[in-house]
Simulated scan of single mutants.
Amino acid sequence: MARRRMLALQNRPDAPRYLIEDMVEDVIERLDFLRFEPASALVIGDWTGELARNLAARGVKVTAVEPAEGFEEEQPFPFDGFDLIASLGTLDTLNDLPGALIHIRKALAPGGMMIASFLSAGCLPTLRDVMLSADGDQPAARMHPAVDVRSGGQLLQRTLFADPVIDQRPLRVSFRSLDRLVGDLRAQGCGNVLADHAPALGKQALERAREAFAAAGEDGRTVEKFEILTLSGWKR
């Protein structure tokens, strides 16, 4: 549902895309650094199509899929034999992340590489503080759990990827208001995906949250931090 809403919001001319753009750029840089030239690739979750276009320009045969349009990452993939599988911005929302990584590995050809990027632990510290302040004595679960660097490494070992690499990078973005931040999150598919949604903030609580967010910044802008975790590994 969050990704379907994201795709609809992305039809707006001013829709934010900085998270997926950062992930796509990172994949391209990694491939160039490794001088890895796959013959075939599966791209999951890049709704901009930019990574698929870049790979196709290199002569790569690309298959692009989108979870919002029916592709199930928690089920065995209906195809395999890929030299590269890139998953962007989706794995953090799954119930069975180890299972999804196993399916990715099985869909790789021997010697194939996976690159998976998604939002991780440490994201949105200001928003978390603001929501706690607004909720008062009865805090609600307003964000789904996130994977940290250590857990990411354990996941790669558990799912038998060779030569695993795990790294995390921050992306800082400034906002003029809490409402703009929330709008950007929804437009990029980063909303809460917990099955049991927390109750909506009342008018007074929402105003407290807006004031706390503004107070956390200066000169009319508040900087929020996104943490992007990238897992990569090979099928030997």
Rank of each mutant, 00 (worst) to 15 (best):
124 L>G: 07
124 L>H: 10
124 L>W: 11
124 L>T: 11
124 L>Q: 07
124 L>V: 08
124 L>P: 05
125 P>M: 06
125 P>Y: 09
125 P>W: 04
125 P>I: 06
125 P>K: 09
125 P>C: 11
126 T>L: 10
126 T>V: 15
126 T>F: 06
126 T>S: 07
126 T>R: 11
127 L>P: 08
127 L>K: 09
127 L>N: 07
128 R>W: 00
128 R>F: 02
128 R>E: 00
128 R>S: 03
128 R>P: 00
128 R>M: 01
128 R>C: 00
128 R>I: 02
129 D>Q: 13
129 D>F: 05
130 V>L: 09
130 V>D: 02
130 V>T: 14
130 V>H: 08
130 V>A: 10
130 V>S: 09
130 V>Y: 04
131 M>L: 13
131 M>Q: 09
131 M>K: 08
131 M>N: 09
131 M>P: 01
132 L>S: 10
132 L>Q: 14
133 S>I: 04
133 S>P: 00
133 S>Q: 01
133 S>V: 04
133 S>F: 02
133 S>W: 01
133 S>L: 04
134 A>N: 04
134 A>Y: 06
135 D>Y: 13
135 D>G: 13
135 D>M: 13
136 G>T: 14
136 G>K: 13
136 G>A: 12
136 G>E: 13
136 G>F: 08
136 G>Q: 13
137 D>N: 11
137 D>P: 11
137 D>S: 12
137 D>G: 06
138 Q>D: 10
138 Q>C: 05
138 Q>G: 00
138 Q>S: 10
138 Q>Y: 06
138 Q>W: 03
138 Q>I: 08
138 Q>N: 07
139 P>A: 14
139 P>D: 06
139 P>R: 09
139 P>M: 11
140 A>P: 06
140 A>T: 13
140 A>V: 15
140 A>G: 02
140 A>W: 14
140 A>N: 15
140 A>M: 14
141 A>C: 06
141 A>F: 06
141 A>H: 10
142 R>I: 14
143 M>A: 09
143 M>G: 02
143 M>W: 02
143 M>R: 03
143 M>H: 03
143 M>D: 01
143 M>T: 03
144 H>T: 09
144 H>V: 09
144 H>G: 12
144 H>P: 08
144 H>C: 10
144 H>M: 09
145 P>D: 01
145 P>W: 00
145 P>S: 02
146 A>P: 00
146 A>Y: 03
146 A>S: 06
147 V>H: 00
147 V>K: 01
147 V>G: 00
147 V>N: 00
147 V>F: 00
147 V>L: 03
148 D>M: 06
148 D>Y: 05
149 V>I: 12
149 V>H: 05
149 V>G: 01
150 R>K: 12
150 R>V: 15
150 R>H: 15
150 R>P: 00
150 R>A: 15
150 R>Y: 11
150 R>S: 13
150 R>I: 11
151 S>K: 13
151 S>P: 02
151 S>Q: 14
152 G>R: 07
152 G>E: 06
152 G>H: 03
152 G>A: 09
152 G>L: 03
152 G>S: 01
152 G>C: 02
152 G>Q: 08
153 G>P: 05
153 G>R: 05
153 G>V: 00
154 Q>C: 08
154 Q>E: 15
154 Q>Y: 11
154 Q>F: 12
154 Q>T: 14
154 Q>D: 08
155 L>H: 10
155 L>W: 07
155 L>Y: 11
155 L>I: 05
155 L>S: 05
155 L>E: 08
156 L>R: 01
156 L>S: 04
156 L>Y: 02
156 L>A: 05
156 L>K: 03
